[in-house]
C-alpha cells in the first residue's frame, strides 16, 4: 500500500484513502466541439504510459476529496513529488539529475 503525500492535507496518507485518476496535464480543449478526430483521440485515448517518471492525477477520495497531481517513478512506484491541481507541470524535479 503506497503512502501518498496529499498537497492539501500536507501530510502522507495511506493509499486506501486515494483513487488514481489517470495521466495528468491532458487539457480539455476550450473548443471541445471543434476538435478534430485525431485531437479527440489524443485527448481521450492516447496515453504516455511511461516506464519511469509519470505525471498523474490522484484524488484524496476518502480524505479531503481534492484532486491533485503527482510525479512518480513507475518502475519503483516511488513518489518524487505531489502538487495541487491547476499548478503547472514542474520544470525541474527535486533530486533529478537530468
Amino acid at each position: 500500500m503506497l503512502l501518498i503525500r496529499c498537497p492539501y492535507c500536507e501530510e502522507e496518507r495511506p493509499e486506501l484513502e486515494f483513487r488514481n485518476a489517470g495521466e495528468a496535464h491532458i487539457a480539455r480543449s476550450a473548443n471541445m466541439a471543434g476538435e478534430s478526430d485525431d485531437d479527440f483521440e489524443k485527448f481521450f485515448f492516447i496515453r504516455s504510459n511511461p516506464k519511469g517518471i509519470i505525471y498523474e492525477r490522484w484524488r484524496h477520495m476518502h480524505g479531503c476529496a481534492r484532486f491533485f497531481n503527482a510525479v512518480r517513478d513507475t518502475v519503483t512506484d516511488k513518489f518524487v513529488m505531489t502538487y495541487k491541481a491547476g499548478e503547472p507541470k514542474p520544470a525541474k524535479l527535486p533530486g533529478a539529475s537530468k
Binding site: M1, L2, L16, N20, P50, E56, R72
Partner: peptide
C-alpha cells in the same frame, strides 16, 4: 492495482 506501474509488484490490500 489502480495505478500505472512497471514494478511487477502491488499492494497487499
Amino acid at each position: 492495482d489502480q495505478y500505472v506501474s512497471y514494478s511487477q509488484t502491488g499492494g497487499l490490500h
